[in-house]
């Protein structure tokens, strides 16, 4: 049952706060793309350090062609309306390769950067993050795909019946809509949630297209994946539309058995149905990503487990995720 599931591979490319960080990140992105990885993550927190992650990946977008671009985006002190517009725009400038990894900001020090409200408890922050994910999907859907009509006879640029107020009312914010950005190429850019911590797990099950987990054994990973699938079902989702990736910091110099052994582990866990893929966080960026792509990925390819080239153009294509129909289009069709 699991043997035909494609394997998904991703890598973290943030390169610190130094003056050459963005240049190093671009080099890492090229290495990852040459190996046909599904996507890059660029970690961030509200307090940094260094440049804004979404900005860095937007800068890289025109210099890459295929690899998915997933910046960490904080939902705690930011405006949901701005956040969704920026992610949609990353999807436009990358021609359908954008995702976002949702993060919360629990620290008092980060709250004081904004000075608006003290940091609420982490559970509430993940609840709010879930609402930000939900309103983002609504706003991405608030323009139906064919809203722009350019009808010269009636002088209308858009068909306003295909633009929708979202009227979202959350616990800590509300948004009227519609978005200012037309529906992005992927319909909904890919939502990634780091589900390593239990506090984030329900939000991941509810909203994530890709959930990242950490586990010490294949059994532990399988149990987490099953838990996420159960959660997805409980939220009315098809678990087949949720990819679960093991995320792990790897120092390939210290890794017992080296890059080849890592390939065995990935192949074993994936083949056994414990995970859908692997997210590499290189301990030393250039060295570990280089060895991962030239040795580990090569080994996985020899075994016919990983693509030799990109087969689609969007991040959803790479992940085997369907392009969603606008929720408002569906409502009209069934009305």
């Amino acid at each position: 049952m699991t043997s035909h599931r494609p394997l998904h591979l991703a890598a973290e490319v943030a390169s610190g706060a130094g003056p050459d960080a963005a240049r190093r990140t671009l080099a890492l992105a090229r290495t990852a793309e040459a190996a046909a990885l599904d996507f890059l993550t660029h970690d961030d927190t509200f307090a940094g350090p260094g440049l804004d992650a979404l900005a860095v990946l937007a800068r890289i977008a025109p210099e890459t062609r295929s690899v998915g671009l997933v910046p960490t985006v904080t939902t705690t002190h930011t405006e949901p309306f701005h956040v969704q517009a920026a992610v949609a725009t990353l999807d436009w400038v990358s021609r359908g390769r954008a995702g976002w990894r949702i993060a919360v900001s629990p620290s008092g020090a980060e709250a004081r950067l904004v000075g608006r409200r003290p940091a609420p408890p982490t559970a509430e922050l993940w609840q709010e993050a879930g609402e930000v994910a939900e309103v983002s999907r609504k706003l991405w859907d608030s323009w139906e795909d064919d809203a722009e009509i350019r009808d010269v006879a009636t002088g209308r640029f858009v068909d306003r019946r295909k633009l929708h107020h979202v009227d979202f009312q959350g616990a800590t914010f509300s948004v009227k809509g519609p978005s200012i950005v037309p529906r992005p190429p992927q319909g909904n850019p890919v939502t990634v949630v780091d589900a390593t911590r239990p506090a984030a797990r329900d939000t991941a099950a509810h909203h994530a297209d890709v959930a990242l987990i950490s586990a010490a054994s294949a059994e532990e990973a399988a149990a987490l994946r099953a838990e996420l699938h159960r959660g997805a079902r409980a939220h009315g989702r098809d678990p087949g539309q949720l990819r679960v990736l093991l995320s792990s910091t790897v120092d390939l110099d210290a890794y017992e058995g080296g890059a080849g052994a890592l390939a065995e582990l990935i192949a074993g866990w994936h083949g056994g149905g414990a995970v859908d893929g692997f997210h590499l966080v290189p301990a030393a960026g250039e060295r570990d990503l280089e060895r991962f792509t030239s040795e580990t990925v090569a080994r996985l390819r020899e075994r016919g487990l990983f693509r030799t080239d990109y087969e689609g153009t969007t991040l959803r294509d790479h992940l085997g995720l369907a392009r969603p129909v606008s929720q408002y289009a569906k409502a009209v069709a069934s009305a």
Binding site: A58, R59, A85, A86, W143, F157, R160, I180, V181
Partner: peptide
């Protein structure tokens, strides 16, 4: 919603970061 003019645009700073490339 006003439908006679161009409607919709991207978020500025993200487009400019891409144009920097």
């Amino acid at each position: 919603i006003h439908d006679l003019d161009v409607v919709g645009r991207p978020e500025s700073i993200t487009v400019l970061n891409a144009l920097a490339a």
